[in-house]
Every structure is written in C-alpha cells, then in structure tokens.
Simulated scan of single mutants.
Amino acid sequence: MYEDALKNFLGVTASVSTILQFLTGVLVCQKIVINKSTGDQSALPFISGCLSTSLWLRYGFFIKDTSVILVNTVGAALFLGYVITFLVYSLRRSVIFRQFTGCAIFLFCTLIYVQNADTPLIAQRHLGLISTVVTVFFFATPLVSLMHVFKVRSTESLPFPIILSSFLVSAQWFVYGILLGDPFMQIPNFLGCVLTGFQLSLFYCFSPKSKGYSSELI
C-alpha cells in the first residue's frame, strides 16, 4: 500500500516536473524570437526530444500508464512547436529540415514495425528498447557542442535550463521506473542523470570565477 502511494505520488510529481521541463524550451525560443536568430544553438535537442516523446507516448499506451501518456502528449506538441521556431529563425533551415525529416521517417518506420510485430509483448519490448536508445541520445545531444565549449571555454551554446531540468526530471522517472519494475524506464533515466550531471559540471568549470574574473576588475 505504501509502495502504491509512493508510485502515485511520483507519477504526479514527475509528470508536473517533466511538463515544466518541456516548458523551459519556451525561454530558449523567446530569446531566439527577440534576437531574430538561433545563434550558436542547435535544434537537434528539440528534434530528438520530439522523436523521444512520440516514441514514449506509444509505449505509454502499451503499458497503459496515464502519467506516461499525458506527459508525452504535451511534450510532443511542445517540441514540435520549438522545432518550427528554429525553422523560422535559423539560417541553416535545410540542415534542420533534413534532421527533422530523418527523425520523422524513423518514427514512422518504428510505429509500423511495432504495429506488425508477432505479439504485443514483443512489440512492447522492442519499442521500449528503441525508446531507451533515443532518450539517451536526447540527453546527450547538447554534447554535440562540447568541442566548441572546450575550445572557447564558454557554455553559452549549452541550454542550461533544459539540462538542469533534465537532470531533476530523469532522477524522478528513474525512481518511478524502479517502482514499476520497468527497466526501459530505469536505464535511460539513470544514464540521463549521469550525462546531464556531467554537462552541468561544465557550467561550474567554465564559470566567470573559474576563468579568474573578479568583481574588482569590473
């Protein structure tokens, strides 16, 4: 009984936290609209987020989990909106369009495959595995800017709000996955904690203080 209560509590809090995490993309897009440019920021985290939430939405219907279905319905809609914003304000529209088209084709092929799997159990397991791999990729996509970050010793190209919220949310879903006994929810969220934790450490390593700046020099 205690475990069920904890599971329900985590289902609600993790859902709210995840939706708030998805909404941090609004801050990124607001800055883009104000500057009328995407700057150094990559659309790949939002494109992979759109793919990830779409896959988990289908997985949520397999396991009949209301929290998973609700969160990923909202997430897929928001990420699609963010991708459209990048398409409008980016000078590299062709690159973003190719990335998005590739993800859309992958999603379509995956859904067709699980729909025609031999049994629902096999379909669930294969979709869970695919969703796990894509989610780990989603957590790791900000790392595409890693070489640039080390080169300029600045984390300006990394979306701090998204990385921080991803760390907190992945921790909640990791515990929720343990309570459900679902390894496909445990594995990506544990790795998500590790990857986003590493990215957060870069903000400390390349903070103004770490560069030797001092308020006395301003």
Rank of each mutant, 00 (worst) to 15 (best):
F22K: 00
F22T: 03
F22I: 04
T24I: 11
V26W: 08
V28S: 02
Q30Y: 11
K31W: 04
I32F: 03
I32H: 03
I32M: 11
I32T: 11
I32W: 02
I32V: 13
V33I: 14
I34M: 08
I34D: 09
I34L: 12
I34P: 00
K36C: 10
S37V: 11
S37P: 04
S37F: 09
S37Q: 11
T38K: 01
T38D: 10
G39W: 13
D40K: 15
Q41I: 11
S42R: 07
A43K: 03
L44H: 01
L44A: 11
L44N: 01
F46R: 02
S48T: 13
S48E: 03
S48N: 11
G49R: 06
C50Y: 02
S52H: 05
S52P: 01
S52K: 10
T53W: 02
S54L: 09
L55V: 08
L55R: 03
Y59A: 02
G60T: 06
F61A: 04
F62S: 06
F62C: 05
I63S: 02
I63T: 09
I63C: 05
D65I: 04
S67A: 15
V68E: 05
V68D: 00
I69F: 04
I69T: 09
I69A: 06
L70T: 13
L70E: 07
L70N: 07
L70W: 09
L70S: 13
V71W: 01
N72K: 07
T73V: 11
V74M: 13
G75F: 01
G75I: 03
A76Q: 02
A77P: 00
A77T: 14
L78M: 14
F79V: 04
L80W: 13
L80T: 15
G81H: 03
G81R: 04
G81C: 10
Y82P: 03
Y82Q: 10
Y82N: 07
V83S: 03
V83P: 00
I84L: 10
I84W: 04
F86G: 00
F86K: 04
L87W: 06
L87P: 00
V88Y: 06
Y89Q: 06
Y89F: 14
Y89P: 00
L91D: 15
L91N: 15
L91H: 15
L91V: 13
R92H: 13
R93N: 08
R93V: 09
S94Q: 15
Q99P: 02
Q99W: 09
F100A: 10
F100S: 06
G102S: 13
G102W: 07
G102K: 06
C103Q: 05
A104I: 09
A104N: 08
A104E: 07
I105L: 13
I105P: 01
I105D: 03
F106V: 10
F106W: 09
L107I: 05
F108P: 03
F108T: 12
C109T: 12
L111T: 09
L111P: 04
L111A: 10
I112M: 14
I112Y: 11
I112E: 14
Y113F: 15
V114L: 08
V114K: 03
V114F: 10
A117S: 15
D118Y: 07
D118E: 15
T119N: 12
T119L: 05
P120W: 15
L121G: 05
I122M: 11
I122Q: 11
